[in-house]
Amino acid sequence: MKILNTALHDVRTGRFERTLSALTAAGAAVTAGEIYLSHDAASFGNKMMYWPLVVVPTAIPAGAAGFFSRRAARTVLPVASAAIVINGLQGCYLHIRGIKQRPGGFTKYNMESGPPAFAPLLASLVGGMGLLAALLRREDLQLPGDGEDH
């Protein structure tokens, strides 16, 4: 119970940097897998479909590093996260453009059967988690090997 109370106190006081860094890494892994499957199903018809598979996975090592290192959480993680946010916004534009280019243009049918218009924004949310992690204070977790970097 003490662990749960400590965790809730940390969240309430903005001490969530390590946990959110780890969640960013996990979210990036799941999101990259989903992007791969979706874009593979579309046969990578546009070369731009490879970009999120390059950009999103950068948050996996960056988020893991942010969990273990305060410095990485404040430097590497926000850079990777900002790139993911930008790429997600770009993807949303490209998906909407793809829907508009289908026969009939921007119709309900094309919205349902074409590229998912707002799916890239979900990747942007993963990037947003990493940016938020960089702004928060660090939890007082005592992990083996914690040194002056804590």
Rank of each mutant, 00 (worst) to 15 (best):
K2E: 15
I3F: 08
T6F: 03
T6Q: 15
A7V: 11
D10K: 01
V11S: 14
T13D: 13
G14T: 03
R15L: 00
F16S: 15
E17Y: 06
R18N: 11
R18Y: 09
L20Q: 12
L20E: 08
L20S: 15
L20Y: 08
S21Y: 05
A22C: 05
T24K: 05
A25F: 00
A29N: 07
T31L: 01
G33H: 04
E34G: 15
Y36E: 13
S38F: 10
H39M: 01
A42G: 08
F44G: 13
G45V: 04
N46R: 14
M48V: 09
M48P: 00
W51Q: 12
W51S: 15
P52M: 00
P52E: 03
L53S: 11
V55D: 05
V55Y: 04
T58M: 06
A59I: 00
I60T: 06
I60P: 07
P61M: 00
A62K: 05
G63W: 02
G63C: 01
A64P: 02
A65W: 06
G66R: 04
G66Q: 03
G66I: 00
F67W: 13
R70C: 01
R70S: 14
R71G: 09
A72L: 08
A72H: 08
V76G: 06
V76Q: 12
L77V: 08
P78L: 05
P78Q: 11
P78I: 03
V79Y: 07
V79R: 07
A80R: 02
A80P: 06
A80S: 15
S81H: 06
A82V: 02
A83M: 13
A83T: 11
I86D: 09
N87L: 04
G88S: 04
G88A: 10
G91Q: 08
G91W: 03
C92F: 06
R97H: 04
R97F: 01
G98I: 01
I99R: 06
K100T: 12
K100F: 02
K100Y: 00
Q101N: 12
Q101K: 09
R102K: 13
R102N: 07
P103V: 04
G104V: 02
G105Q: 02
F106V: 01
T107C: 04
T107L: 05
K108M: 12
K108C: 00
N110W: 01
N110L: 01
S113P: 00
G114D: 07
P115Y: 03
A117Y: 03
F118Q: 07
F118A: 11
A119T: 11
A119M: 09
A119E: 07
P120K: 08
L122P: 00
L122M: 10
L122A: 07
S124D: 03
L125H: 04
G128Y: 06
M129K: 01
G130P: 10
L132C: 12
E139S: 11
L141G: 06
L141V: 14
Q142C: 04
Q142H: 14
L143M: 14
G145C: 12
D146T: 14
G147H: 10
G147N: 13
E148A: 14
E148F: 05
H150E: 12
H150D: 11
